[in-house]
Amino acid sequence: MPRGGARVVSGPAPDPNALRRNRKDDRSSWTMLPAEGRPGPPPAWPLSEPSAREQDMWSELWEKPQALMWEQLGQVLEVALFTRTLIEAEQVDAKVDVRKLARQYLDSLGLSVQGMLRNRWKIVAVAESNMRPEDEDENAFVPPRRSARDRMKVVPFRGDRG
């Protein structure tokens, strides 16, 4: 294994509020997910017979905003494995390795703050969302852009300092 160099999650996570958001490559790189979440029933459970707790967690997870992206990316199996791992990690006597794996799933599925930033996902009100059911192309939606100048207009200028 190499000792130095870049890693998949090395460096700071992307910041959706950075001042240089008007770069050409950033225009469509952030996906705005509607806060209301994914409508409809969850997909069929892909693993062996689920426990009652797994069924409840499965349904709950598929109502989250991130579920729109899991569905689009075909991550049904990953979400099921996360569900099963999370239920195991909840146990008092769970092994550290199981808890670490659950944490890794949280990040990779965008269920943690770091995971949301790394996936470049942001949860917003429906009016601000760029996810629309009729959009099939993942590049069809573009987040709203504001220039640095527009963001600075929030603070009114007061010329009289006295």
Rank of each mutant, 00 (worst) to 15 (best):
K24S: 12
P34I: 00
P46V: 09
A44S: 12
A67F: 02
R38S: 11
V124K: 05
T85N: 05
L117G: 02
A148V: 09
M32A: 07
E136C: 05
G110T: 01
R158T: 07
A67S: 13
P133I: 04
S28V: 11
P42Y: 08
V8P: 00
V92I: 12
D15S: 11
V96N: 07
R84W: 01
D26Y: 15
L101E: 11
P14N: 09
P41E: 15
A52Q: 10
D25H: 08
E36D: 09
Q72I: 01
E36Y: 03
P12M: 06
A140L: 07
W30M: 05
P156W: 04
N130A: 12
D97G: 13
D15K: 05
R151M: 13
P14W: 01
W30V: 09
E54S: 13
E60Q: 10
E71L: 10
E60T: 13
R53T: 14
K100P: 00
E134V: 03
S28W: 03
R27V: 14
E138V: 15
E54D: 11
E36P: 02
Q72L: 09
G5P: 07
R118E: 04
E36K: 05
M57G: 02
R20W: 15
N130Q: 10
V113S: 09
R149Y: 08
S10E: 11
R23M: 13
M116Y: 00
E134C: 02
G4R: 14
T85H: 06
Q114S: 13
V124Y: 04
S51V: 04
P14L: 04
W30A: 03
A80I: 06
R145Q: 14
P39S: 13
G37C: 07
V124A: 10
D160I: 12
K122P: 00
E138H: 07
W58E: 04
L68M: 10
D150S: 09
